[in-house]
Amino acid sequence: MRRVALIRFVLLVAAIVVLPFCVRPVVASEICIFAIAAMALNLIFGYTGMLSFGQATFFGLAAYTAGLMMIHWHAPLLAVLAAGTLVGGVAAALIGYVCIQRVGTYFIMLTFGFNQMLYFIAYKWTAVTGGDDGLPGIPRPPFAVGPLSISLDSSLRYYGFVAVSFLLAFYAMKRIVDSPLGVIFRAIRENPGRAAAVGYDVKRYKWLAFTIAGAFTGGAGVLYSMMFGIVPLESISWIISGDIVFMVLIGGIGNLYGPLLGAAAFKWLSEAISVVWERWPLILGVALVLVVLFLRGGLVEAFTRVRDIVAGGGPRPEPDEPVSVPDAAESQARP
């Protein structure tokens, strides 16, 4: 098992190295940034069973925090990254405390509701956020540790920084889901009632998962703020929240690599098709529907199937319920 994990990790690093030479470095950076956010959502959605439709709250809050720190204080890179992560985590702790009191659709709508409120504040508080015009003029500080200082001005160098941040985030996330904590999260997803009966404080663990995810999402938001020198208002809008949800779903939930593939596919598809045909969302929609109807395990399952065909076994019969997605709907639907 350890060898399999190692090979997967090596493969991931190889993909990260190759990525900016296959797609533009800018797109590659964005893929990595959204992969972090998708990975964070996967922790609460895929591993703990809570679908948040409001991750842009933490993404955007951290992006604004970082932007303001860099504009007004010329704060250094790592300080900004730490601050944004902290802001994401604290905001998620506050908002999450309220949201996790409810489950199912009510939980989703609470996360969405808070997202809308913060969007509104960002929209109206133009003196601080620039409102609809976005927060412009954000510098990209160099990567500086002690006497070492590396400029990140070129797209490729910035990608390097984003990629390293991504790998660190991935490693941290892997440690979390492999730890006893991860096991508890999964137990809560499978059956919250049983987890409680065994003696776990379900709400507290949900809260913890939500907070951790908020911190990761905040980190992604900071990286995003430095991409184009502007924090656009969309960064805190529900459109981004929705995109993150769909990335996770496309990739396949409840497994570490799914959200990464989902983020890559979602971003790359929308970039590649939009250049070819201005009605690109149509193709995206058709792809989504086909995936849902015929390839429910997401891209991870696609790989598995290709592997099986290559191995000569022919396609597997499709299970009614993919193993990665337990039918927790009934238990979720009631508060």
């Binding site: 995206l284 792809a287 989504l288 529907v289 997605v325 927790a328 709907a329």
Partner: peptide
């Protein structure tokens, strides 16, 4: 299957 897939389906249809 899990209702999240129908969410994805209806999102695709809406696009």
């Amino acid at each position: 299957v899990h209702p999240d897939y129908t969410l994805l389906l209806t999102f695709g249809l809406s696009l």
